[in-house]
């Protein structure tokens, strides 16, 4: 049973389930499932940056928006086809994300949070006020996306693209974090000074972490514009950032599986409380606070203990794990002779 419920199998089962949604469910549920896929990409991308690499950045919603605007404006102004606008939006967000790595070299913790937050607010301001380019606060509708010759409507076509992107990016992140790249990220998070002494180049790996998370958020954004058929600034504000953080923290910092779970829970919760939109900020703020206080290592940590999950690089021992007491086996061995 435990083997059957391994993280890998569960991700596989979840994606098989998501693959059949368009065949079984109505338009509304396809839309919700599509949001789940996009939030998985967003949460995994943000987790690479804050959970693995330990960079407390607040620009993920802005990167999400840059991806959406990048792809949408390329379509709207220049008639760029969507198959080209989608990766372009993702790359524009990746470049913007990489620029954020520069202040991260000098700043950390709350100061980095402030600088990235300022960047996010600036981005939002540009989106709302640079009317001639961004169509201003009212937003705009990118041209319809034609999936011909495939027999797909726009919602189903976007769903298929989102499914492929989410599956590919999750697989990519899972493998990358289980390698020397993931170890370099975690080393940087757990001790910058010791990481440097082992030859880990902080500039290089911080830039990589920001670039990756920018690319993930940008991909989600470029897809979001197509799913919604509309791009406007209000979707990329601070509340959006709180949602991304909530998904990451609820699921579990430093765990890909956690971000997948967090994204599912987030979107379902959002739908449940949609009728009480005014209370949403309070609800998610409270939820985030509750998790930080009572389950700081996320839902995935509960599953790890109950189901014996063993995800790589997610071993941060909590206060419940005490150090083995002395005497322990000898620290040194006698030389062989």
């Amino acid at each position: 049973m435990r083997r059957l419920l391994s993280p890998r199998n569960l991700i596989f089962a979840l994606f098989v389930t998501l693959a059949v949604v368009p065949f079984l469910a109505n338009k509304y549920y396809v839309f919700i499932a599509n949001l789940v896929l996009l939030y998985m990409i967003l949460a995994v991308g943000l987790n690479l940056l804050i959970g693995y690499a330990g960079q407390l950045a607040f620009a993920n919603a802005a990167m999400f928006g840059i991806g959406a605007y990048g792809a949408g404006l390329l379509q709207a102004h220049f008639g760029v086809p969507y198959w080209l606008a989608l990766p372009s939006g993702a790359l524009i967000a990746m470049v913007s994300g990489t620029v954020m790595a520069l202040p991260a070299l000098r700043l950390s913790g709350i100061y980095l949070a402030l600088v990235t937050l300022a960047f996010a607010q600036f981005t939002l301001w540009v989106m709302s006020h640079w009317d001639t380019v961004t169509f201003g606060a009212g937003g705009f509708s990118p041209p319809r996306i034609d999936f011909g010759p495939l027999p797909l409507t726009q919602p189903n076509g976007m769903y298929l693209l989102s499914w492929l992107a989410a599956a590919g990016l999750i697989w990519f992140a899972w493998n990358a974090m289980g390698s020397r790249i993931g170890r370099a990220f975690v080393a940087m998070r757990d001790g910058e000074i010791a990481a440097q002494a082992l030859g880990i180049d902080l500039l290089r790996y911080k830039a990589l972490a920001f670039a990756l998370s920018g690319f993930y958020a940008g991909t989600a954004g470029a897809l979001y514009g197509g799913v919604l058929g509309f791009v406007g600034p209000e979707g990329f504000d601070l509340l959006q950032m709180v949602l991304h953080k909530a998904a990451v923290v609820m699921g579990g910092l430093g765990s890909i599986m956690g971000s997948i779970i967090g994204a599912v829970i987030l979107v379902v919760l959002l739908e449940v409380i949609r009728e009480f939109k005014a209370t949403m900020e309070i609800a998610f703020g409270g939820l985030l606070l509750a998790f930080v206080l009572f389950q700081p290592r996320g839902i995935v940590d509960l599953l790890r203990r109950k189901l014996g999950w063993d995800e790589r690089l997610h071993y941060k021992a909590g206060p419940d794990q005490t150090a083995p007491s002395e005497p322990t086996p000898a620290a040194t061995r006698k030389p062989a002779e």
Partner: peptide
């Protein structure tokens, strides 16, 4: 002590082989 708490002892050692 500067062992990385988020990794196993073996992964700590493997990180030492980064270069």
């Amino acid at each position: 002590s500067q062992l990385f708490p988020g990794m196993t002892v073996l992964e700590n050692m493997m990180t030492g082989l980064h270069l």
